[in-house]
Design a binder for these strands. Structure first.
Lengths: 206, 206
DNA sequence: CTCCTGATAACACTTGGTGTCGTCGTTTGT
DNA sequence: ACAAACGACGACACCAAGTGTTATCAGGAG
């Protein structure tokens, strides 16, 4: 007979999400979370470096997935296609139950500290993807642009997928968001100093 | 004769930047900062909501500047041009001494907590600019894409401006970064589902 | 049976951050 | 010119996040 219940980390994650939803992030102490999970406050920090991380457990898997997808893509696949494919397939890592994802997102949106952490995760992902593209021979600053754009598509798609009501696969949401990007680029940059004019006029600058 | 020295906030900001550079962010307590500024720990929190904010004092001015620039732009100016113009002119708010900006950026880069805050500030700016564009009639999701792209140009330009060695105006850096964006869009998305193809075909959407 | 390992409780401690009150120059009103 | 309200700060108490350390006890290896 084991001395302690198994799955301590999972219990902590569940307890944290529940309590944040019930009382808010600020209204919940680490001791509260630990107590609901049947542990001591000190044990919480053996599983998570800080209080926020209890909500961001899935990040390592996402990082691993993206790294693998990009590294394994054929060398001649255009970078944009690599990014979109990797991000689209990462939808497999999402919880089966959209409601869980939605609740988690609500909790994050309700608290600046949590938003801060989420945004940092996206920035970390940005650095990762940029360096992976750089390894494929894409100039680093150009890679940075493509990654940022792809991440924004991803965020928009995720928001749409989460939304209650709409009943789409994540893949469908990604396709939608990418189409919207098309419109934004043609509409927004139509007569700026930028891509649209050069592409339209066939006149490479510089 | 005043009872206390004036400019307490400025003294705190200076002390914080110095100490973070000397001993690192973690190696510096709020009491240390307050002491160097000739105040008590409690007074620090009368000027800043938390320890990190001592490094981000300029944000309110930046927000005010961007809001004003976007709101005052003629209604028929294309959104991309509005964004780039607003961000470019915000270079006027930077410290005259590039070395100060560079040191500040080094301190931020050296600490995840500070990076977290910086990235949150950018996200806040993103929300602001997106809603300002939405007020101008740009569909919100398209606005989100344009803003993200413009912010990335801004970041790249700032990094280049900061860099020791290169001696360019911020305006010049923005132009450079925008040109790099051109190349990224043509190169990276050449045969994706996206804008480049449609633009190349001379087919304005909408 | 004993030793070792690993996960946990228990406890002390530092630091970020807040509430509160008293103090005393400064400013305002008359 | 004088009193009252104001404002910035010191001083102190307090809570919660996060860390270091030690003791405890299950199960596995020899």
């Amino acid at each position: 007979m084991p001395r302690w219940e198994p799955d301590a980390q999972l219990r902590l994650e569940t307890a944290a999400l529940e309590l944040f939803a019930e009382r808010g992030y600020d209204g919940t102490t680490v001791a509260d979370i630990a107590e609901r999970a049947g542990l001591m406050k000190r044990s919480f920090f053996r599983y998570f470096p800080d209080k926020r991380e209890a909500l961001f457990g899935g990040t390592e898997r996402l990082v691993a997935h993206l790294r693998q997808e990009v590294e394994e893509a054929p060398a001649d696949t255009p970078p944009w296609q690599v990014l979109i494919a990797a991000l689209t397939s990462s939808g497999r890592l999402f919880p089966k139950d959209r409601a869980v994802a939605h609740q988690r997102q609500s909790v994050i949106a309700a608290n600046p500290e949590l938003r801060e952490r989420e945004v940092l995760k996206m920035a970390t992902l940005h650095d990762l993807l940029t360096s992976l593209l750089a390894q494929r021979g894409i100039p680093e600053r150009q890679a940075a642009y493509l990654v940022r754009l792809a991440q924004t598509v991803y965020e928009q798609a995720f928001a749409q997928w989460i939304a209650p009501g709409a009943d789409m696969t994540f893949e469908g949401c990604m396709a939608d968001a990418a189409a919207e990007l098309d419109r934004a680029l043609t509409l927004g940059m139509a007569d700026a100093t930028s891509a649209a004019r050069r592409l339209g006029a066939g006149q490479p600058a510089r």
